[in-house]
C-alpha cells in the first residue's frame, strides 16, 4: 500500500429526468429521446472517491458500462479529478439486468486491482441499488451501502463507513477490497476545475474493454439476465385539484376527505 489505494468509481449514463419514453414493442426504456447525463447520485460517489485519494493517496479510475457514447460520463468524472476512465462497451452487454451488469463491473474492478470500489446509491433510471452489492457478491468482497461518511484506515487495510440505517446509524469497518454505495446527497460534489475539464473533453481517451477482454462473453446480456420485462402498463394519472385553505385544521379536514 505504499502508493495508496486503487480506487474505482462506477458511474452510469442515464436519461435526463422524466424525459423518457417506453418502446411499445419491447417494453424497454427508449433512451434516444432524452438527453444523456451522469446519474446524479454518482456525483456523491465521485466526490467520496476523490476525498479518499486526498486522504491516503492512490489513484481514482472511473468505470462505466454502456454504449460508446457513455464515455461522456467518464469525462465528467475525469473533469472532477479522476485520474483515468474505463469504458466497458460491447453489444453483448445489451439487455443485461443487474446480475450480468454487476458481473462485468466486478471483473473490471478485479482487472483494475481495486482496493475500494465506489458507486452511487442507485440510478435514477432503474432505482434498484442492486449493482454495488452485486459487484461485491460476484467478487466475494465486503460491501457497505447507504454510506454517509468514509474514513480510510490504510494502516489496518480497512475502510470505516458510517451507514444510514432506519432510525439511526452504524459505523462498520470493512476489510479491503470493499464496495461502497454512497448515500445520495451525503457530500457536496466539487465542481470541475476548468483546465481539468478542458483536458477531459479534448485530450482524455478512456480505455475500452469488451466482454471477451473481461472473459464474460457467455455470462452477460439478456440471456444471462434472470429477470425479464414481462409487460409495461401506463399508470392511471391521479386526479388533482387545487384550492386555498386558511388553516392547518381546514387542510387536515380536506386531507381527511380524500384519505
Amino acid at each position: 500500500m505504499d502508493n495508496g489505494w486503487n480506487i474505482v468509481v462506477c458511474v452510469k449514463q442515464v436519461p435526463d429526468a422524466d424525459d423518457v419514453s417506453i418502446d411499445p414493442d419491447t417494453g424497454r426504456l427508449n433512451r434516444s429521446d432524452a438527453e444523456a447525463v451522469l446519474n446524479s447520485p454518482d456525483y456523491n460517489a465521485i466526490e467520496a472517491a476523490l476525498s479518499l485519494r486526498e486522504a491516503g493517496g492512490g489513484t481514482v479510475t472511473a468505470l462505466t458500462m454502456g454504449p460508446p457514447t457513455a464515455g461522456e460520463v467518464l469525462q465528467v468524472a475525469v473533469g472532477m479529478g479522476a485520474d483515468d476512465g474505463v469504458l466497458l462497451t460491447d453489444r453483448a452487454f445489451g439487455g443485461s439486468d443487474t446480475w450480468p451488469t454487476s458481473l462485468a463491473l466486478a471483473r473490471a474492478a478485479e482487472e483494475l486491482d481495486a482496493d475500494v470500489v465506489l458507486g452511487g446509491e442507485e440510478t435514477t433510471d432503474s432505482s434498484t441499488g442492486q449493482v454495488p452489492p452485486g459487484i461485491a457478491a460476484h467478487n466475494g468482497w465486503a460491501q457497505l451501502t447507504y454510506v454517509e461518511e468514509l474514513e480510510a484506515r490504510p494502516e489496518e487495510d480497512r475502510l470505516v463507513a458510517r451507514r444510514d440505517v432506519e432510525g439511526g446509524y452504524e459505523r462498520v469497518a470493512a476489510e479491503l477490497p470493499v464496495v461502497v454505495a454512497m448515500g445520495f446527497g451525503e457530500n457536496t460534489p466539487r465542481t470541475a476545475d476548468l483546465h481539468r475539464k478542458i483536458y477531459a473533453e479534448t485530450e482524455f481517451e478512456p480505455t475500452e474493454w469488451d466482454a471477451s477482454d473481461l472473459g464474460v462473453e457467455d455470462e452477460v446480456g439478456m440471456a444471462a439476465s434472470p429477470t425479464q420485462v414481462g409487460g409495461m402498463a401506463t399508470a392511471d394519472p391521479v386526479p388533482r385539484e387545487q384550492s386555498m385553505v386558511d388553516s392547518a385544521d381546514e387542510l387536515a379536514e380536506k386531507i381527511g376527505e380524500v384519505r
Binding site: 432505482s127 442492486q130 449493482v131 452485486g134 457478491a137 460491501q143 451501502t145 429477470t227
Partner: peptide, 21 residues
Amino acid sequence: HTGRDFAGRVAVPNHAGLTAD
C-alpha cells in the same frame, strides 16, 4: 436499507432474479 443491502448481495451467488421495490 438492510433488506436492500441483503437482497442485492444474496441474489448473485444463487443467480436469482431480483426485482426492487
